[in-house]
Simulated assay, not measured.
Amino acid sequence: MSERTLKADFENRAPSEHPSRWNDLWVEGFTPWDRGLPSPALLELLTERPELLPVSGSTNTGKKLKALVPGCGKGYEVLLLSAFGYDAYGLDVSEKALEFAREHEKEMGSQEVYKTREGVERGKVAWLCGDFFTSDVFKDVQDFETGFDFIYDYTFLCALPLSLRSKWSQRQNELLAPGGRLMCLEFPTNKPTNSGGPPWPLPPKIYQALLPRPGVELKYDDQGVLVESELGPPSPKGLMALAHYQPKKTHKAGYDAEGKLMDFVSIWGHNDSA
């Protein structure tokens, strides 16, 4: 019997069917993307790379900074950001995933990784069920119009069909506050470009093409390789890459068969507030 794959689950399904299918998979307990713990790369950023975190010029100065984790699943990173003082919002299209997230939140007090650091007041946690691409899902977010100071993207872009990538770049641009930071944990970077998905192959150059050009459709050849020669210039309103590096460690899925770390971290901000 062949091993079940996410690709097979989504093959021949229209993008409009994807949200309900993700929920079905949570109900069925088939969740190969669930890592079981917060991202080591995010923890590294929060503890060792403060120069890459949101700047003091954020529109939310004087209030707790707001963080968003789209496609949050069980909410490991949401709870971690809360422990570092952010008002943290976990967004998912699956209500079943958020049921698990609420259960995990009740248990987090027993886990060392979620302990607040000295002098840090824990931020609030909120769970949002709905579509990342609509504003309705954010109707209960306080001061939503100011944007989010920190957005964490991992196993979210790679779960989206290619037809939604331009909308993803546009939405990240819209949701990120002036002075805010978008962290992309780039994955999977070493998957063959013609292998399909989800998870869809995402070498770093895809992020580097998308985010400076919000809303622009990218072109790929018949092997799924980005046609870089047809990229237009970056938009003045696009996001700017502030850092690109490999973390010290990442989830097990981010290593190749020989044990080489393949994930990258990119940090992005608005051109006029970097």
Rank of each mutant, 00 (worst) to 15 (best):
R181S: 07
V120R: 12
R49G: 02
K237V: 09
Y220R: 03
P15K: 06
K63S: 11
P188S: 10
G90W: 10
A8V: 06
R171C: 00
L261A: 11
E103I: 14
G123T: 05
D222R: 05
L128M: 08
G109Q: 14
L226K: 05
N12M: 01
E51A: 06
E112N: 09
L211D: 06
S2N: 07
K219G: 04
V113G: 05
P178D: 15
D256N: 15
A243V: 07
T31K: 09
D9T: 03
P40S: 08
L231E: 11
L25P: 02
I206W: 00
G254M: 13
G259A: 13
L182T: 01
E99P: 01
R117E: 15
G85E: 11
N194A: 12
R35F: 06
P236C: 03
G75H: 07
V69D: 00
V69C: 02
K248L: 08
S110A: 11
L202E: 04
L261K: 06
A159L: 00
K63H: 13
G179C: 12
E77V: 05
I267W: 03
A67G: 06
V113M: 12
S135V: 00
Y220L: 11
F10W: 00
S16G: 07
C72R: 11
N190D: 12
N12V: 00
E174A: 07
K106P: 15
D153T: 00
V227P: 06
V137R: 13
T250A: 15
G75P: 08
L162S: 10
P201S: 07
A83K: 09
K74I: 04
G123I: 05
D263R: 00
L79Y: 03
Y152R: 02
S169W: 00
S235E: 11
F84K: 15
L175W: 12
S273D: 05
D143W: 04
H270I: 14
C158F: 03
V225Y: 01
E11W: 04
E112R: 12
L218S: 06
W22A: 10
E112V: 09
S235C: 08
F10D: 01
R35L: 10
D222Q: 08
L80H: 02
F10A: 01
P54N: 10
L202S: 10
